[in-house]
Simulated scan of single mutants.
Amino acid sequence: MLPVTAKTKEQAEDCPIRQVLSQVTGKWQMLIVLVLEDGALRFGALRRTIGDVTQRVLTENLRKLERDGYITRSVDPGPPVAVSYALTPLGRELLEHMKSLTIWAAGRHQQVLDSRTAYDSK
């Protein structure tokens, strides 16, 4: 088994697995990385592509991903000023792992729905 057990808060904070996964496995982080697969996008295009994300939540998640080195933020002074986001090499590597999980999830969606229905009917 992977070393994921932490008996204290300090051990949990020092766990490299928890440190990384807690920052990349949220719904918004995963969607942002997946959306950037085909290349850089401006903030508005990112927001429209994802659809149901607020400006504040998107901004917070972009900052987290940039801080951890998964994306870069580029500013073209314009006019008008244009800010775009793109995956770094680390982000591209993460994307490949996320794509596998995404493909698996799409292929198992009906099975999960059937399981939920069976569970809820008990």
Score class of each variant (00 low, 15 high):
residue 102 T to P: 02
residue 61 N to F: 00
residue 121 S to M: 06
residue 60 E to M: 06
residue 73 R to Y: 00
residue 83 V to P: 01
residue 80 P to E: 10
residue 47 R to H: 03
residue 49 T to P: 00
residue 59 T to N: 08
residue 69 G to A: 11
residue 10 E to K: 13
residue 32 I to S: 03
residue 94 L to Q: 09
residue 87 L to N: 09
residue 46 L to H: 02
residue 30 M to E: 12
residue 85 Y to A: 03
residue 58 L to H: 01
residue 45 A to P: 01
residue 40 A to Y: 02
residue 111 Q to I: 09
residue 21 L to C: 08
residue 20 V to L: 15
residue 59 T to D: 12
residue 12 A to Q: 13
residue 70 Y to S: 09
residue 112 V to T: 07
residue 116 R to P: 01
residue 73 R to L: 11
residue 61 N to I: 02
residue 52 D to N: 09
residue 68 D to E: 14
residue 17 I to N: 05
residue 117 T to G: 09
residue 51 G to H: 04
residue 22 S to K: 11
residue 113 L to E: 14
residue 75 V to Q: 08
residue 98 M to H: 04
residue 37 E to W: 03
residue 29 Q to T: 03
residue 120 D to Y: 13
residue 53 V to Q: 01
residue 122 K to L: 14
residue 15 C to S: 15
residue 4 V to H: 09
residue 3 P to N: 15
residue 49 T to R: 15
residue 63 R to L: 11
residue 5 T to S: 07
residue 79 P to S: 09
residue 65 L to P: 06
residue 60 E to R: 14
residue 43 F to G: 01
residue 18 R to D: 05
residue 54 T to R: 00
residue 21 L to P: 00
residue 56 R to H: 07
residue 104 W to K: 10
residue 122 K to E: 08
residue 66 E to Y: 02
residue 88 T to Y: 10
residue 9 K to L: 15
residue 33 V to M: 06
residue 65 L to N: 07
residue 100 S to L: 14
residue 85 Y to T: 03
residue 114 D to A: 13
residue 70 Y to P: 09
residue 90 L to C: 03
residue 82 A to Y: 04
residue 77 P to R: 12
residue 26 G to Y: 09
residue 91 G to E: 10
residue 102 T to C: 04
residue 74 S to L: 07
residue 54 T to H: 03
residue 70 Y to V: 07
residue 114 D to W: 04
residue 84 S to M: 05
residue 48 R to N: 07
residue 1 M to W: 04
residue 39 G to M: 11
residue 12 A to K: 13
residue 17 I to R: 08
residue 37 E to N: 12
residue 9 K to T: 14
residue 92 R to W: 04
residue 40 A to G: 05
residue 89 P to G: 08
residue 8 T to F: 05
residue 122 K to W: 04
residue 18 R to T: 08
residue 6 A to C: 14
residue 97 H to N: 06
residue 59 T to I: 01
residue 9 K to R: 14
residue 91 G to S: 07
residue 19 Q to F: 02
residue 65 L to M: 10
